[in-house]
Structures are given as structure tokens and as C-alpha cells.
Design a protein around this nucleic acid. Structure first.
Length: 122
RNA sequence: UCAGAUGGCCGGAUGGCCGCUCUUGCCCCGCCACCAAAUUCAGACGGGUUGCGUGUAUCUCGCGCAGACGGUCUCAAUUUGGUGGCGGGGCGGAGAGGAAAGUCCGGGCUCCACGGAAAGCACGGUGACGGAUAACAUCCGCCGGGGGCGACCCCAGGGACAGCGCCACAGAAAUGAUACCGCCUACCCGCGCGAGCGGCGGCAAGGUUGAAAUGGUGCGGUAAGAGCGCACCGCGUCUCCGGCGACGGAGGCGGCAUGGCAAGCCCCACCGGGAGCAAGACCAAAUAGGGACGGCAGGGUGAUCGGUUUCCGGAUCGCCGUCCGGGUGGGUCGCGGGAGGUGCGAGGCAACUCGCAUCCCAGAGGAAUGGCCAUCUAUCCGCGCAAGCGGUGGACAGAACCCGGCUUACGGGCCAUCUGACGCU
RNA sequence: CGGAGAGUAGCUCAGCCUGGUAGAGCACCACGUUCGGGACGUGGGGGCCGGAGGUUCAAAUCCUCUCUCUCCGA
């Protein structure tokens, strides 16, 4: 099972935004390979983004916490070690039932895993 | 019972599973350092002793090598115990607000080398009076004015005879107030027999405009009028009384002067140095006390440094402008024991203060304080005369150095005191 | 988190300090000019000054609160 670390710096978020992107009603998933200087082959790194479009500070905090709970449940199972993931909150993140939110994230993670693995081989 | 006023409080509850941050209170594990003890190994020293070799050498003796024994010292390791530090795990404990918000005021704290002295100038702020407070634009009490039947509420509430400025349009006239319409013809002059007309004049009552027209109402008075006179009201002023005071009350006098705007400049009184925890400090890494060009000043007693002037020290040293280049995904502290909370007692109308007891109560850093589920419940919606049934499922909102206020947002509930109306006794 | 600044016509800005009439350019409409269009000329329409309250006779302007946007900061 992969170890999960947190992204803390702006350049990491920008690089993931330029990488792979999967959109579902509950969450937008962005992903890219961890750069060499910080690479830890056994770890998955993850960050969260909640923009002002979501709402005030209360709504943004709540969206980030739901995403964090979902990521804690699924990332060790479906995340590909050595890669960075960014979960972006959408309007549906707050209202969607938690089971559906988990399903959204699982599907996106599996799709991204295939793409990332393919990119590494080529 | 209904309607309302004021003050205070609450800010969904319970349980389950899985998580996050802090905490060394307890336990366990690992690593490191130190101390103590024991054991073991190695080495050194010298002592006697045993064996072998060697010297002419069998013994004594010398030298060399090896072994065992006990002693001293050094080093290392291990074990045990203790102390300290770091890391990890388990148990336990704690973990968003009344506004955490807006950043509108007041402070603490930090830096600006010091923020010293006395004023002045400039700028900004406050504004009845008395008190509370660390301080305030806050709070309490009181005064004055305004609103409400009332409980009660609202008021940036000093000065417009220190000066400057403005008052558009309308209107005769807008501040040295004025005379358009109008009123009068007593006095004086002229004309006319006369009523009267004209002149010389008098007046500001009435009309019109405007946000505002220079006291108001009544009576007297007059040619018509006018504070011209009188009464009351208003205003001003003097005296007395009450109050710490703002101010209030009573009496006398004045014959009315003093339009509005100071959230226009301003005057008076009082207050204020600036910037802000991305302040700032330490450690690590990197580095550089960087380079080029131009201008000015040039070994003085100069320049710069507080918003500014002066004084007293004091600090820094070439100054200014333009251009080029280098570095940063760091860590720790600041960082929560405080103008602190709760309870009791005392003082005070109150704000608040004092004393005693007791408690420790968030500290993150792409940023913790949660995710999911179940039951109950406030509210709202529908049905029902009602009891109730079904559905919905919590308002505003998230700490970022801290504290005291103000302001703004907020579904709903609870408590206390008070007012008015109606009803009953 | 802290600190500055700006909201006025469809767009870009004046006017605010010193209160009484909101103006300029571009754009829009009509007419002229041209065979027609553009350019040019003439004329015209369009704003309750981000919102609420206060001071004042009177507020875009002065004061307070509030909303939105922009910029700066080891």
C-alpha cells in the first residue's frame, strides 16, 4: 500500500494542472509525475484546491475536508506511487452523496492510473 | 389575553465506526550522549613462574619467543540500572465564534540607533457636564433638545458680535437688508369756490417669492404706521437660591439688538511620532563589503538621520540617478498565564473597583479542530376542527500575534423587569 | 493575514478639494455629401453618479455604514 504525502507548494499544483485531467460531477482530478528531485517511488503525493467559486471560507473548508476523507479512503488503493494528484472541488462536491463522491474519485483514479503507467513505459 | 419596550442568555442533542492537530500526564520500543557497577576481549607495564630456542651451557645466570596465573592502567564491547535528548507507538486529556467577519477606533508587543527637552508650525482626530478605564470615537450617570398615550428611544450636543467665504432659482429685497405693488396726506408749498389734485414728504401694517424676509399674539396709539406704549410669551442681561458641574428655579432690568451653513475654511480646549507578527530575532545554506556609466561634492566641520523648525547630546559616512547581475520549495523562536475565566463577599445608583478561593481553557502553517451513519428535536410545508400524521432537517458564519470596544450579518428559542389596551376579581 | 486605491452614458475618463447647471472622446440614431459605402459635416438620443443612512433649504460632491473590483507586501 502506498504512502500518502501532502503537496505544499504552488509549482506542484501548477504542474499537475498542465498534466492529466479527469472531470466528474463531484471532483476534478489532475495528475502528473513527481519531479526527480523530490521523487519517492513508494509515495503518492496529493493536494487539494477549493476556489472562491465554491463559496465562503466555511464552504471551501467543508469541500476540502470531504475530498480529504475520500482521498484517504481511495488513494492508497488506486493511486500510482511516484505521482502527484490534485483534487479540485466543484459545485457538486458539497451536495453529492458521499458514496457517489467515492465512486467519482475511484473511476477517475483508475483512468489516470492507466494513462500515467502508459506514459512511463513510452 | 393581545400589542409593545428594555436587559441578559443559548447558538441543535445523543450514540457508533474511521480520521486530523497539539499535549510527555502514564506506559512501551528504537537511536544517541553521559554516569555507575559487573563481565569479557585486546594492548601496555613491571613481577615471580613454566616450556622451548640460543650463548662453552647440564644446573645457576643473560637474551628472545610462547603459554597459564594474579596485579595496575588504558581502550572497546556487552549486560543491568539511572539521567538527559531525539524519533515512533499505545492509553489518557484538549481542540473555532458571538460575531472568529468588516478592519472603524483604543492599547500591549516589535522594529525604525535613542524617541531626550521645550515650545512653535503643519497634519489628523475628539467636542455639553461629571465619572469609569491601561486607553478610547467605548461604557455609566446626569443635563439640554427632539419623538412616543406610555415603558422608553434618538441626537458629531463647543463657538456664527475673531475673521474669510457661500446662500443657486424665484423675489422689491438674501445681510452695510430692501421698497415693486401698496398705505397716509396731520405738518409745509402750489393749484382749485370746494370735494380734491400735484409736490415736498411719512410708513413698513397688508400682498407676492423663497428653505429662510430682522421678535410673536392682543390692546392702546396714529394722518397712516412703527416696541411708539402696555400685558403675556420668546430673547438678552443682572442679582439671589439649589447643584461638584453642565444647568435649573425665582425676581429685577433692557424695548429687541444676534438669519442659516463650522459632517466649508476657521477659532477655542484637549489628544496624537511612523510602520506593522509577511513586525522582528536566531540557526543552516548560499553569497558580495557586487559591477558599469553619468552627475554633484570633494578632506571639510561637511552631508544624512524625527512630518518640520530650534536646542542638547548621539549615530552613520562620500551622496544622488540610470542600467546590469546573483540567491530563496529551509528550520526554530516570536506563539499564548492573560488589563484571563468561574464562584463568593465588600464598596458604588451604575459603568466598574477591591479582597478571597478555585481553574488552565485552540495554537495550524496549501493551514488541524473533521468524514460518514443512526435516533431525537427547533423551524418550515402539506393534511386535519383538534389531538396528531407525513415530509423537510438547522440561521449568520471558520481562529492566523493578543486584548478592550464599535459596526455589520443572523432561522429560531429561553429568562427577567417594565408599559399600554381589553377582560375578570 | 496586513496595507493602499477605484466605482459617473454601451466603453475609456473629467467634474468632487471650493455643495445648486452632470461634461468630453469613441460608439449609436437621423440628415447632408456620394452612383453606393467609408471618411467628413450638422443635429439628436442615452446616465436617478455602486447601495443605504445622516448633515444641509439643497449632495455625484461633505460625513458614517455597506457591497464589488484592482494593486502592494518576507
Amino acid at each position: 500500500m502506498a504512502k500518502v504525502e501532502r503537496l505544499r507548494h504552488r509549482p506542484d499544483f501548477l504542474r499537475c494542472a498542465r498534466g492529466i485531467r479527469r472531470v466528474s460531477p463531484g471532483v476534478t482530478l489532475e495528475a502528473a509525475a513527481t519531479p526527480g528531485d523530490f521523487a519517492n517511488p513508494s509515495a503518492v503525493r496529493v493536494g487539494f484546491t477549493a476556489t472562491k467559486k465554491i463559496g465562503g471560507a466555511v464552504e471551501r473548508n467543508r469541500a476540502r475536508r470531504r475530498l480529504r476523507a475520500a482521498a484517504a479512503a481511495l488513494l492508497p488503493l488506486y493511486g500510482l506511487p511516484g505521482n502527484d494528484y490534485v483534487l479540485v472541488a466543484r459545485a457538486g462536491t458539497l451536495t453529492r452523496p458521499f458514496a457517489d463522491l467515492l465512486e467519482d474519485l475511484a473511476v477517475s483514479l483508475k483512468a489516470a492510473r492507466q494513462k500515467l503507467a502508459g506514459a512511463e513505459e513510452s
